[in-house]
């Protein structure tokens, strides 16, 4: 464990708790892409199947359990409890356009052709594109609530910090996992224009609005 990965994990935890809190407090999931949340749920479930079989540390097990629980709770709030506030007209990104190619790629490019490893690889690839429906929805509505932009900033920062963690681990531990690194770079690149808007607007107290 290193500081970059720890801060990255905490930023990730902050992001998902922030989103859950926003939906619960405002009793509304307006501006939130349910499709992205479904894909994140899929990411955690397929990645953490080893939750009970492969004990790494208390921290690792606890965080995996929290991520899965918060993801399921968020999906429940969006599609059941506050379903009336779900903006399905703007959440129109076709998930199958992401899940099918990612599933195929996981079969072709992986470290080990076993069920668990292919599911882990699927999860890594899916996570890199899972935010697309959310970013697409913001581009359609032309704006995002400030709390949603904080969620996105924390979520985008987590994988950016993981990239720093991988550089650190390469130089100090001789460890690198090319699949995670390439997917992590793609994931972080997808946030770049959002990061620019966040820094230039939200940090100056303005609302996040895309140029019409």
């Amino acid at each position: 464990m290193n500081i970059f990965r720890l801060v990255g994990d905490l930023s990730h935890l902050l992001a998902i708790l922030l989103l859950l809190w926003k939906i619960w407090k405002t009793r509304s999931c307006a501006g939130v892409s349910g499709k992205s949340q479904i894909m994140f749920g899929l990411v955690y479930i397929t990645r953490y199947l080893d939750l009970f079989t492969n004990f790494i540390s208390i921290y690792n097990t606890t965080m995996k359990a929290i991520f899965i629980a918060v993801a399921i709770a968020t999906i429940y709030l969006i599609y059941f409890k506050f379903k009336a506030t779900y903006d399905s007209n703007h959440d129109t990104f076709r998930m199958e356009f992401l899940i099918v190619p990612v599933g195929g790629l996981a079969f072709l490019v992986n470290h080990d052709f076993t069920a668990l490893e292919i599911l882990w690889t699927f999860s890594i690839y899916l996570e890199s594109v899972a935010i697309l429906p959310q970013l697409f929805m913001i581009s359609k509505t032309g704006e995002a609530e400030t709390i949603t932009s904080h969620y996105l900033f924390a979520l985008g920062s987590y994988r950016a910090l993981y990239i720093v963690n991988w550089v650190y681990r390469y130089y100090f531990e001789g460890f690198f996992d090319l699949i995670a690194i390439v997917a992590g770079c793609v994931q972080t690149i997808l946030y770049c224009d959002f990061f620019y808007l966040y820094v230039t607007k939200v940090m100056h107290g303005k609302k996040l609005s895309l140029p019409a």
Partner: peptide, 10 residues
């Protein structure tokens, strides 16, 4: 370099 199969990262 090591490609550890039991993924220790979240």
């Amino acid at each position: 370099t090591l490609q550890d199969m039991d993924h220790d990262e979240l």
